[in-house]
């Protein structure tokens, strides 16, 4: 346990530079986005009212008030989110491969630590999780600030005020990243954790058996996916909707936990018996 905390902390420190850079990009691009989008709307309003002599009422009738949704739907807002997602996805692989490649072979050190080799797995998956939730938490802090800037720029007659929760639930893509209830957060990110554990196992297959390992990894992934959806397949094709929806849901959770345990066990086995430097 102590070694796990030390190693997880070590891994988090290793990713902190990339993490900070992505946070910085998100901060700057999103805030610039708020300003640019608000300006765009205000310039249009000015043009319509002064050059085309529209009254405020006429303008609002034609173009509606501006809501923060317009900012959210812009590339200014979604771009950094996509970048952070890509960053995490990329780092899932890099977190392992960076230890093997390059002049320094840190993997020797990791594998020779006087601790269970699964600790390495747990430390790395924890790092991915902390990084991901860190982005989510940062976005939740950033949003009220952006809303404040938005309020400061657009006069109240021209804007449709929204709270953070409304903004978050206004787009399905965003409400998956930031769901409305804690249960959903646990489920979504639990599913994410499961997916990462399967990918990690795949990576370890590749690291253990090289080319043949890629084949094994794909096979493992396919088996995991089939197993995971097996209750759904069973329900649809074998037992003819025998299960009530809630039972099916619980079965899915149990199946997810089984696969997660399976991934941990398999990774532990590979790290202990099959890994090669």
């Amino acid at each position: 346990m102590k070694n796990y905390i030390k190693l997880a902390n070590f891994e988090i420190n290793r990713v902190s530079k990339l993490f900070t850079v992505l946070l910085g990009i998100t901060l700057i691009v999103q805030i610039v986005g708020v300003i640019v989008e608000a300006r765009k709307y205000l310039n249009m309003a000015n043009e319509k009212m002064y050059e085309e002599m529209m009254s405020i009422a006429e303008f609002l009738e034609m173009f509606n008030q501006m809501s923060f949704i317009q900012v959210v739907r812009s590339v200014w807002f979604l771009g950094p989110i996509a970048l952070c997602i890509a960053g995490v996805a990329f780092y899932i692989f890099l977190i392992w491969y960076r230890d093997w490649f390059g002049r320094n072979t840190f993997v020797y050190r990791l594998l020779m630590l006087p601790t269970s080799r699964l600790t390495i797995f747990f430390a790395k998956i924890t790092t991915i999780m902390v990084m991901t939730l860190g982005f989510v938490a940062f976005q939740l802090i950033l949003l009220p600030i952006e809303l404040l800037i938005f309020k400061g720029m657009v006069p109240s007659d021209f804007r449709n005020d929204m709270g953070v929760r409304e903004v978050v639930s206004s787009m399905p893509e965003i409400s998956i990243i930031i769901p409305g209830s804690l249960l959903e957060l646990i489920l979504y990110y639990g599913a994410g954790l499961l997916a990462v554990s399967i990918l990690f196992t795949g990576i370890l297959f590749e690291r253990s058996f090289k080319w043949k390992g890629i084949f094994a990894a794909v096979l493992y992934g396919a088996v995991a996916v089939v197993l995971f959806i097996s209750p759904l397949l069973l329900q649809e094709f074998v037992v003819d909707h025998f299960f009530y929806p809630l039972e099916l849901f619980l079965l899915e959770i149990v199946m997810g936990l089984i696969i997660f345990a399976g991934s941990i066990w398999t990774s532990g086995f590979l790290l202990k018996k099959k890994i090669t430097v």
């Binding site: 290793r14 390059g102 002049r103 320094n104 072979t105 840190f106 020797y108 050190r109 020779m112 630590l113 006087p114 601790t115 269970s116 080799r117």
Partner: peptide, 19 residues
């Protein structure tokens, strides 16, 4: 075993720490 690494160590030809 895990704690065998407390009584045997390996010095590979490349350095095992991060640059």
């Amino acid at each position: 075993k895990e704690n065998t690494f407390e009584k045997i160590t390996f010095i590979p030809d490349a350095i095992t720490m991060l640059p």
